[in-house]
Amino acid sequence: TIDDAFRAIERAIQAENEGRYREALKHFLDGGEMIVTAAEKEASQKVRNLLLHKGKEVLEWAEHLAEWILE
């Protein structure tokens, strides 16, 4: 659900702030994927587009974090 997705993102932010970057990455990926999944089930085109945009933002952040971890 969207609530689960945002809880995962909150955990990711907390982990990132505490320097637990790999854990943060996992939570960002989980949250982003949950948002995209919820968007695919959404009946309203406007809400679907907003959710897809937010999911994409979260997944892009996860990608940047992963690249930073690997440096």
Rank of each mutant, 00 (worst) to 15 (best):
T1F: 13
I2H: 01
I2F: 05
D4K: 09
A5W: 08
A5I: 10
F6T: 05
R7Q: 10
R7K: 13
R7V: 05
R7A: 10
I9C: 06
I9E: 00
E10L: 10
E10I: 10
E10P: 00
R11G: 08
R11H: 11
R11L: 11
R11D: 06
R11C: 10
A12K: 00
A12F: 08
I13K: 06
Q14E: 08
Q14F: 07
Q14I: 12
Q14L: 09
A15K: 03
A15T: 02
A15D: 01
A15L: 15
A15W: 04
E16A: 15
E18N: 09
E18C: 11
E18L: 05
G19Q: 04
Y21Q: 01
Y21K: 01
Y21R: 01
Y21D: 02
Y21N: 00
Y21T: 01
R22C: 15
R22Y: 14
R22V: 12
R22K: 13
E23W: 01
E23G: 00
E23H: 06
A24D: 01
A24K: 00
K26Q: 12
K26H: 06
H27P: 00
H27Y: 13
F28C: 06
F28A: 07
F28Y: 15
F28Q: 02
L29W: 05
D30H: 13
D30C: 14
D30Y: 15
D30L: 15
G31Y: 08
E33H: 14
M34D: 02
I35H: 03
T37M: 13
T37F: 07
T37G: 06
A38L: 15
A39T: 03
A39V: 12
A39Y: 07
E40S: 13
K41W: 06
E42A: 08
E42I: 13
A43W: 07
A43K: 14
A43V: 12
S44P: 00
S44D: 15
Q45K: 11
Q45N: 08
K46D: 14
K46I: 14
R48E: 07
N49W: 08
N49S: 06
L50E: 12
L50K: 09
L51F: 04
L51H: 00
L51E: 00
H53S: 12
H53M: 15
K54H: 06
K54F: 15
K54S: 04
G55R: 08
G55C: 11
E57V: 13
V58K: 01
V58Q: 01
W61T: 08
W61H: 13
H64Q: 11
H64C: 13
H64E: 12
L65N: 00
L65T: 01
L65C: 04
L65Y: 03
A66Q: 06
E67T: 11
I69M: 08
L70R: 11
E71V: 09
E71A: 12
